[in-house]
Design a binder for these strands. Structure first.
Lengths: 148, 148
DNA sequence: TCTACTTAAGTGCATATACACATTAACCCT
DNA sequence: AGGGTTAATGTGTATATGCACTTAAGTAGA
């Protein structure tokens, strides 16, 4: 690990500030594409993981999504109330297994090409190199920051 | 602009998903450091820009922050009600000039070293190279995505 | 078996985010 | 001056986010 340079930084160079701004910008692009489905990009992610990873407990799903567990609880509400995801009982009565309903799977299938359009739009704008650089930097950052 | 590769991607590789996850993770680190001041990281940014850029209209500030204007309107509420920022009248009566109050400037000054600790913590964990890579990738991404 | 600890999940509260729409003031042209 | 357009901002509604705290269920040890 390189030595942390003695700090001489202004808040405008804040890593957090830049990351948040970029996340907002990117989120907008995806959410607009997904608008016809009624899904926000975050809901798309949740639905996708539930559909792919079969019956899964909330805590585990939160782990996969790198989301606070209590945030996920609330994010599930619209998906549950619109019948895209269901709760199933499990052996452990504390646990709530989540599964995608038929409607959920169908909607996700319909949303997938719209997501792909957004992803492609973003990647096209950034170019191959920047796309790879960005993904690499994000992935390594998550690894390094995971411990904190 | 490099050619957009013909898409064969799964939603787990979603640029947006990764960006949002990283933003959440990083935000947590900063917000915890700033907790003693009562400021969230987003409030710290807003307050900092207002303090630095003197009297400024909401629309211009939103531009600087890469935030939706209406989001900024709401984000200002806690800062206004706690007296850290004030609205001043301007020649144009539609316009609301924002200025940091004495209390706002004082609190920002107190928050600055805590922010620096967070920034340093993050940079130390990532190392010099990754820090530079990440910042570079974020900056170029914002440039390229700005047009969309 | 009873109690203490641990684990899985929900709630209260406050803030952040953004789209569609509403409002008011400035401006420009005839 | 009057009328249509543009510009700056706020509101309604809905979702996203996370900390502190609570509840309920499983588990292990005396």
């Amino acid at each position: 690990m390189s030595a942390p340079a003695p700090i001489r930084l202004s808040p405008a160079e804040c890593t957090c500030f830049r990351m948040r701004g970029a996340a907002r910008r990117v989120s907008q692009i995806y959410s607009r594409r997904l608008a016809p489905t009624g899904l926000k990009i975050s809901q798309f992610s949740v639905l996708g993981f539930v559909a792919a990873r079969g019956p899964i407990a909330i805590g585990q799903l939160a782990e996969l999504l790198s989301t606070d567990r209590t945030t996920l609880t609330r994010n599930l509400r619209p998906l549950l109330s619109s019948g895209l995801i269901e709760r199933a009982a499990s052996g452990d009565k504390r646990r709530h297994e989540l599964v995608a309903t038929a409607a959920g799977r169908a909607l996700f299938k319909r949303a997938l090409p719209l997501w792909a359009e957004a992803e492609q739009e973003v990647r096209a704008a950034m170019g191959t190199k920047l796309t790879a650089d960005l993904h690499g930097a994000l992935e390594r950052s998550m690894e390094r920051l995971g411990a904190l």
